[in-house]
Amino acid sequence: MTTESLNSSSRGKKWLWFHRFGSPAWVYGFASRWAMPIGVVALLLFVVGLYQGLVVAPPDYQMGDSYRIIFIHVPSAWLSMFSYFVMAVSAGIGLVWHIKVSDLVARSVAPLGAMFTFCALVTGSLWGKPTWGTYWVWDARLTSELVLLFLFIGYIALSNAIEDRRTASRASAVLALVGLINLPIIHFSVEWWNTLHQGATVTKLGRPSIDTRMLIPLLIMFFAFNFYFLSAMLYRLRCELLSQERRTQWVREIVND
């Protein structure tokens, strides 16, 4: 027995639940159990949120009905950054502790993050045309969000380009960690520089400067997007686990059922 496993067992049972997340077979079972219920919750939230946002919420005093794009734009933008954070942190954990599951979480989050970033850019541009008068402008917020899309694409490309698994996850983890610096730049870009993009509404210190009837659908959609993200991530993680562990006993048992 190595000194390390002695250490961890002597630290007590508190750590047992945590160590389970390092076991691919256990995580596969966990994902299979939770992906569907979480997805159902997301679907219900989407239905309520869309109804509240498109039908119940009143139009804006300046932008009329075009502001309704925020109900998908803001959650997409939030998730684009959040999924990058999840991806970089789990890739980093995989890099330091060599936990396979952690690498696979990063791999399954990356395409989702790219999708959210793309959605944030497209919906933002479709909102920009009627409100600002242009689809695109190279201001700090829009440019840094575009850089985020390239970081996701770079991560996906790099982790697929290298044949050897361990080298691939190491190289792409370094890229993901270096790209973390972009997150504070995206968030604070509207404060640090003059931009066409407006400042933060909901996370503003003090009271959010948005009417309650508009804030409620925004929050519902926010939760819907997060649940969708979680469910989609678990579904993707299942695929990653199966194809990575294809030669192991637990996969054979699952496949033969």
């Binding site: 139009p59 009329g64 009905d65 075009s66 309704r68 794009i69 998908i72 734009h73 497209v122 919906t123 479709l126 909102w127 045309k129 009627p130």
Partner: peptide, 10 residues
């Protein structure tokens, strides 16, 4: 309110 293209496309 006239923004059908932008809202529905997104």
């Amino acid at each position: 309110g006239g923004y059908a293209f932008f809202v529905w496309t997104s």
